[in-house]
Every structure is written in structure tokens, then in C-alpha cells.
Design a protein around this nucleic acid. Structure first.
Length: 630
RNA sequence: GGGGCCGUAGCUCAAUUGGUUAGAGUACCGGACUGUCGAUCCGGUGGUUGCGGGUUCGACUCCCGUCGGCCUCGCCA
């Protein structure tokens, strides 16, 4: 009689003292085995829910014990046995909470080997870190590791909570097309050639933006969808070419309504999964404040080190004194500073740390980072080290402007406001890490609002949309569209947590006159607007309700819930930085016949490369046969 | 496209200034062992130092190129 693996009674994470005496059927993988010779064998059996210790005793179950001795790691087995209390042998890990089943063990009477395993290419263990490339190539093994699997249980739980929340709030989940139309603005599209219309291409959606606005015009009122999005841009630690958004849109709402819904969702998810209570309503900060105080539109508000303007204090500096500052001011630039207080650990800033910071700033395109320490007395502060000697005459003014006192250290960046913001916001975060100013296990969320409606693109000499061209200006700023477009603020809002954008959205334009004016400013002609966005513009003519929405990066939410900085840890089969899937080797070449059917030809360069690759591989095959022939 | 870090046994890593036969832990194989729990103990197998070229009496080490991975700037409305 064999063990009925299709009638498991429990998972491997489930058995407790209360089950003692029961006969159970478990199935899973051999996590490790401890063979004690003549009498006893222990196996830790693993499934996705946990580990259970199996005990084989040769005196009571000689046949099962004999089989147990043939087991190796990762064999897939099913067992039937009796739950025993471990008595005074309760696992230490039961007491630490690492092994909730550690109070019991299963004395196995019957075992079936369902499937043997080759020696895995790396150990399936939370104790061994293997290089990620190999892990991704054998992701199905990597996913067996409890720590790795945990991320996907959390992801699934978060998805369920979010769906429940939006269903309760009256949202409909409706699917939108993946094969859709390429949009000219924004990220690069992934293209899909059409066989039926050779020479034409679908695009995979960067987001369902246009469709969800059409839902509002259709009267669906509240729409929310967990949806895959695609962007063909360079990858990052938190960016994959395909990722998941919770995309939502609401009609008859103002910005406050959308923000209220989303922050309610955030608080619910954080509370249910982490037991962490986020206080609502979330604070709000204007974009202008965020840029001025933090140099960044996604400020990390868990620590201070805010940016301080010292342009006024240094406005009289001459090129002889310090050319870098004088030249920046002469060119119309500004100078800002970060003051690291003595109480924040300024004395920990060794030369090694400040030099490392300077090098890192150079690495992102800056000229370095000027720094000096404040010494002397509160009444008569003096600068020491670094650039101190060069800016000594301005010491009193700078200390007054920044609140710097003896024992503090100052870091300066001169130049165009955007550059100053970039380098000092970078320095701010790095300093906070170096000084341990970021509290662990803490979440600081806020809304950033009042973004500019338009940016000026210096290279292309035109206005561009920081959000998208359907974003509604603030009502009170609409007159400025005619007079001072860069001053116009938009009804856009970003949810920021711990210095990372977690969601972004806006109230949309539903008035034709405003939309035309915005297109005009963006240099999009009437004809062009119709070619690109005809379906939306058409729809806006048929009684479009006021509407707005938001999308949040579900992968990023999951990253924060799991506590990882890599998006690859929350995607089952992620791609490497070159957008390759190590498991499937996608993307791959396809047969020429397949391309012909689509009316696609490869460039001469690609064809030559392909031919060369084919020749060298056929030579290798020849070598291989030759070798075996010998 | 730019900057940085990395590539040595199946896996994680070491190898002094360029110097003898490239080591350790783990995994794997064999043996021992009555309560282990990342078991322990004894023994063993295992290497094109990513790849190609150069310098040198001699290269894991230095130089050039190339492939791959990670971080990052640009990019990502």
C-alpha cells in the first residue's frame, strides 16, 4: 500500500502539540537528513509552509528506516506517521519561533519516494547566499528557500487585501488590452508585430492610462485593476521591464478623494501584514517645499539633514577667494549646504567618509563636494579643514543661515538649482546612512502635491509634461497658462514613503478648452493631438465627468512589506539588468520564416552576426561528435 | 552611452611584492555513530582561476580587449 500523497492531512508548517497522537500524511522535499547509524534517522521535511521533523526508528519501522537511508536532499517524498511530542527534546528553534512545529515530530511508519533529485546546483538553504544569476537560472529551486518563498506569500496576501479593499469601496476590476496602440510620449514601448496587418505594430501598455479614463466616460465611476505594465527602459534595482501596478480611476472626485482612498489602502495593508499603524491623514508637502528642503520630489522624511540656502551669505565671495563658488554665483547659480550637527555624529565623519562621498558625487556628474568643520566658540565660530580657509570671511553669516555651531560639519554644493538639488539630495541620503540616522522598521509616508504642470526641456527647447498631458492644472492657476506657464501648478499628487515614490496620479482635464491650451503649450498641434490621442479626445466630447486617479507600484509596496531593496526578490521570474531571463534565455532569436510571415527583415549587420554565430556553433557540434567518435 | 564593484572547486570565499604542487568551509561520494535539529567524527573525489591576447624566466596576481553579473548617472510622461 502506498502513501496517498493526494490526501495530505497537514502542511509542513502546521503540526503542533495539540495534534499529538494523530496519524498524518505529509508530502514535501527533503530539507536535510541526519543519519544516526543503526537506530535513528531524522529528516526535515519542507513544503512552502514550513519544516517538520520526521523520525525513523529501525526498531519499530525497519522498512521505512531502510528507505530513509537512501534519501538525499531535495528528494520529493510522502510519508504517513504518528505525531509525537518531542518531550525534553523540543527544538531550540521552537522557542525562538524559527520552527513553529519544533515541539513535535512525526514518527514515520510508511514512506514513498515520489521523485528523486539530482544534487542541486546550490544549497537550498537560508544560510547560504548564492550568486543571483545562478539562482535565477534555477529559480524553481531558489523559490523553495523559505526566505525567498516568504516574499511571494506576502505578495499574494497584499494583492488579496488590496482587491478586498477596493471591492469594499465599490470599485470594479475590469481588464484592459495588452495589445494596444503605441503612445508617442513617455517611455519606449515594447512592440508586437501584427501578422494580419504586416508592417503595423501593437504596443504593450506602459499603463492603462487612456483606457481607465474611457471607463470614467463610460460611467463605470470607480475602476481599479492590478495590472501588468511594460516599459522598454534600462533596468534598476527597483525597475523591471514588466511590473505590476494597482491602477485606479474615479469619477466625480477631487484630488482629496483619490488621496483618501489610497492612503486608506496603504494603512490597511501595513496594518494587516506588518501590524504597523500608519496615522491618517498623511501629511502633505508641496513640490516646491520638497525641492527646497530636500532637493528631491520624493523626500525621505525619516531624518533631518535638510538643505539650507547660503547664497545670500556668500554673495560677496570673489574668484580669488574661492572660484568654484564665485563662478557659480556669477552664472546665476545658487549655493546650498547641509549641516551635520555634532549631535548627529559629525565627529564620525572621517576623511575616508568625506572623500568617498566626494568621489561618489563625481560619479553622478558633479564636481565633488566642498566641506568644512566648524570650530571656535558659539560667539566666534571658525571654519577648519577643507575649504574653511577660503570662505572664512563668510563664516558668521553661513553659521547664522544654517544654524551651524562648533562641532558641526558643513557640506556645500554650488551651481544651477537642479544640480545643487541633485548632488545635495544624494549627499544627504548617503550621509544619513553613514551616520546611522535612518531608524530601522520605521515608515514615513506623505503626499507631495502641487507639482508644476510643465517643465522646460532645455535640449529640445520646449515644454514637457512631468506627469502626462491630461493632468488638470490647479483651478486658480489656469489664468497663468496664458501668461506664465512654468508657474502653473497641477492637480497631481505622489505618495512618497521613506524617500521612494509609491504612487502617482492626478485629476484629469475634462474641459476641451483647457486641454487644447495644454496641447498648444506642449507644441502638440491639433492634427497631431488627434493622430495620437483621437480616441480619448473623441470620448471627451460626450459628457466626460470630472475624474482623476492614481497608480501605485505594487512591486514597490511589496518590497517595503518584505523588507528588500531588490525588485527581483518580489518577482517570481525576473530579468537581469540586460533584460534577459536567465531561466528561459528570453529574448531569443526566431526563425527567419517567422519573421517573413510578419514582413520583418533583419538589418545586414544583424544577419551577418547571426550567420557568424551559426557557423561557430555548427563547428562546436562537429568537435563534439569528433570527440565522442574517438 | 558614462562611472563604480565583481568573476578562483557544484556553492561561499582565501591565496603576502608577480614566485615552488592554487587552499579552506560547505556540498557530493564512502565509512563510523542511539535523540539529532545548519548533527558530529574519519577518509575521499573535485580546478581551462569567465574567455582571448600581451608583458615576464615565471601571471589568480600586471597590461589590453572581450563576455557576464550587480550598483549607479543618463533614461524611465
Amino acid at each position: 500500500m502506498s502513501v496517498p500523497y493526494n490526501q495530505r492531512t497537514h502542511s509542513c508548517g502546521e503540526l503542533r502539540a495539540e495534534h499529538v497522537g494523530q496519524t498524518v500524511v505529509l508530502a514535501g522535499w527533503v530539507n536535510n537528513y541526519r543519519d544516526h547509524g543503526d537506530n535513528l534517522v531524522f529528516i526535515d521535511l519542507r513544503d512552502r509552509e514550513g519544516l517538520t521533523q520526521l523520525r525513523f526508528n529501525v526498531d519499530t519501522d525497519p522498512e521505512a528506516t531502510k528507505r530513509a537511508r537512501t534519501l538525499r536532499n531535495e528528494y520529493c517524498i510522502a510519508v504517513r506517521g504518528e505525531v509525537l511530542h518531542r518531550g525534553d527534546q523540543v527544538s531550540k528553534k521552537f522557542h525562538t519561533g524559527e520552527m513553529p512545529t519544533g515541539e513535535i515530530e512525526v514518527s514515520v511508519h510508511e514512506i514513498d519516494v515520489l521523485s528523486q533529485s539530482e544534487t542541486p546546483p546550490f544549497e537550498i538553504s537560508d544560510f547560504v547566499d548564492t550568486n543571483e544569476d545562478l539562482r535565477l537560472k534555477y529559480r524553481f529551486l531558489d523559490l523553495r528557500r523559505p526566505k525567498v518563498a516568504r516574499a511571494f506569500r506576502i505578495r499574494a496576501q497584499a494583492a488579496r487585501l488590496i482587491r478586498e479593499y477596493f471591492a469594499e469601496q465599490g470599485f470594479l476590476e475590469i481588464e484592459t488590452p495588452f495589445l494596444t496602440k503605441s503612445t508617442p510620449e513617455g517611455a519606449r514601448d515594447y512592440l508586437v508585430p501584427s501578422r494580419v496587418q504586416p508592417g503595423s505594430f501593437y504596443a504593450l501598455p506602459q499603463s492603462p492610462q487612456l483606457f481607465k479614463q474611457l471607463f470614467m466616460i463610460a460611467g463605470f465611476d470607480r475602476y481599479a485593476q492590478l495590472v501588468r505594465c511594460f516599459r522598454d527602459e534600462d533596468l534598476r534595482g527597483n525597475r523591471q521591464p514588466e511590473f505590476t501596478q494597482l491602477d485606479l480611476e474615479m469619477a466625480f472626485v477631487k484630488a482629496d478623494d483619490v488621496m483618501g482612498i489610497v492612503e486608506g489602502c496603504l494603512a490597511r495593508v501595513w496594518s494587516e501584514i506588518l501590524g504597523y499603524e500608519i496615522k491618517l491623514p498623511l501629511p502633505r508637502m508641496t513640490y516646491a517645499d520638497a525641492m527646497s528642503r530636500f532637493g528631491c520630489d520624493a523626500p525621505d522624511t525619516r531624518f533631518g539633514l535638510e538643505l539650507q540656502d547660503v547664497t545670500e551669505s556668500l554673495k560677496a565671495i570673489t574668484a580669488d577667494e574661492f572660484g568654484v563658488f564665485a563662478n557659480a554665483l556669477a552664472a546665476g547659480g545658487i549655493i546650498k549646504a547641509i549641516c551635520v550637527k555634532k549631535s548627529e555624529g559629525a565627529e564620525k565623519l572621517t576623511r575616508k567618509i568625506t572623500d568617498g562621498l566626494t568621489e561618489a558625487i563625481k560619479g553622478i556628474g558633479g564636481g565633488g563636494l566642498a566641506t568644512t568643520k566648524v570650530q571656535g566658540t558659539a560667539d566666534a565660530p571658525e571654519f577648519a579643514t577643507g575649504i574653511g580657509a577660503r570662505i572664512q570671511p563668510y563664516c558668521a553669516a553661513i553659521c547664522k543661515a544654517t544654524g551651524a555651531e562648533p562641532g558641526d560639519q558643513l557640506f556645500f554644493a554650488p551651481g544651477k538649482p537642479a544640480d545643487v538639488a541633485k548632488y545635495l539630495s544624494f549627499a544627504r541620503i548617503r550621509l544619513a546612512h553613514e551616520l546611522g540616522l535612518i531608524p530601522a522598521g520605521h515608515f514615513e509616508a506623505l503626499w507631495v502635491v502641487d507639482f508644476p504642470l510643465l517643465d522646460w526641456d532645455e535640449e529640445e527647447k520646449r515644454y514637457v509634461s512631468p506627469h502626462h498631458p491630461f493632468t488638470m492644472p490647479l483651478e486658480e492657476d489656469i489664468p497663468l497658462l496664458a501668461t506664465d506657464p512654468l508657474k502653473v501648478r497641477s492637480q497631481a499628487y505622489d505618495l512618497v514613503m521613506n524617500g521612494e515614490e509609491m504612487a502617482g496620479g492626478s485629476i484629469r482635464i475634462h474641459r476641451g478648452d483647457v486641454q487644447r491650451r495644454v496641447f498648444e503649450l506642449l507644441g502638440i498641434s491639433e492634427a497631431e493631438a488627434h493622430a495620437k490621442f483621437e480616441h480619448l479626445l473623441n470620448a471627451l466630447r460626450f459628457g466626460a465627468p470630472p475624474h482623476g486617479g492614481i497608480a501605485f507600484g505594487f512591486d514597490r509596496w511589496t518590497m517595503r512589506l518584505v523588507g528588500t531593496d531588490s525588485i527581483r526578490d518580489v518577482i517570481a521570474f525576473p530579468k537581469t539588468q540586460r533584460a534577459v531571463c536567465p531561466l528561459t534565455d528570453a529574448p531569443s532569436e526566431v526563425a527567419i520564416a517567422q519573421l517573413n510571415e510578419l514582413g520583418i527583415d533583419l538589418s545586414a549587420e544583424l544577419k551577418a552576426k547571426r550567420k557568424a554565430a551559426e557557423e561557430s556553433s555548427s563547428m562546436n557540434v562537429g568537435d563534439h561528435i569528433h570527440k565522442h567518435g574517438q
